[in-house]
């Protein structure tokens, strides 16, 4: 499945992650509100890990720490052994909302990262590659308001991939899509990850999505988020939802989330 040439065409290798005792809290009406509580996690380069937990438990906060958008109040977050202190294009974040810039065409949205770093001239060819990769060839001059939800999310993905990231942080990127688009996008995410060899972290509250996509599923408690379990999904891709192994894992995961019947 993973061709050596296609690997080279995108990224060198995935990033290794270490999270050591990270805690995070926000101020809410003057009182500290803990959202992450002593989370420790190690991710191997090129691994696909899903962070599963109830809505609003603080998983997204963990992604913001890894992206370098926020700093933890306690603990350390390391990327390839170096502390993460600021955002960097090697670690890109894809949000639940595509948050495309409505005043830019698809091409200009995808070009954003290269433009911001002054690489348009030397790496401009990557824009079309990224657009082709997410299957939006022919929509380069469309504006975001002309696109469907699924197409917008593909543009957001292309905008992330054009920077040749080594870590892809996915914050429920398929959460708002209709169920059919969701299924096809899940399959595409797996293909993308396999081709590129980058490390992927997916935040989701959809058990099935986590099991179909990830090699490892980390289960979180309600807020403040704490790691309660880790499920290893040792099945080949492409996976099928009715695989008995996955069905058993699904029951286990739902039980861990307190939803078993």
């Amino acid at each position: 499945m993973v061709g050596a040439t296609s690997r080279q065409e995108l990224s060198a290798a995935g990033m290794a992650l270490e999270i050591e005792g990270a805690s995070q809290a926000f101020q809410l009406e003057g009182r500290p509100l803990p959202v992450l509580d002593d989370v420790s996690l190690t991710v191997r380069p090129g691994e696909f890990v899903a962070l599963l937990g109830p809505s609003g438990c603080g998983k997204s906060t963990l992604l913001r720490l890894l992206a370098g958008l926020d700093a933890p109040v306690a603990g350390r977050v390391l990327g390839d052994g170096a502390p993460i202190t600021a955002p960097d294009p090697s670690r890109v974040l894809v949000f639940q909302d595509p948050t495309l810039y409505p005043w830019r065409t698809v091409r200009a949205n995808v070009a954003l990262g290269l433009e911001a770093r002054g690489l348009l001239r030397s790496h401009g060819h990557r824009i079309q590659e990224a657009i082709d990769l997410v299957g939006l060839t022919g929509f380069e001059t469309a504006y975001p308001h002309q696109l469907s939800g699924g197409m917008s999310q593909r543009v957001a993905l292309a905008r992330a991939l054009v920077n040749d990231p080594r870590l892809l942080l996915l914050d429920e990127p398929l959460g708002k899509l209709d169920s059919l688009t969701r299924l096809s996008m899940q399959a595409e995410l797996v293909r993308l990850w396999q081709r590129s060899g980058l490390t992927a972290l997916l935040v989701t509250h959809d058990v099935e999505e986590a099991l179909v996509l990830a090699q490892r599923v980390i289960v979180f408690s309600p807020r403040p988020a704490r790691i309660t379990a880790e499920l290893v999904v040792d099945r080949p891709y492409p996976r099928h939802r009715d695989d008995p192994h996955l069905v058993a894992l699904r029951r286990e995961a739902l039980g861990l989330l307190g939803l078993a019947d």
Binding site: G68, L69, P87, D88, P89, T99, L112, A116, R159
Partner: peptide, 18 residues
């Protein structure tokens, strides 16, 4: 302006001027 626009640009390596 939607704060997420800034987050996006910052993760992609944008400077303050950008």
């Amino acid at each position: 302006v939607n704060k997420a626009y800034y987050d996006i640009a910052r993760t992609l390596g944008a400077s303050q001027a950008f």
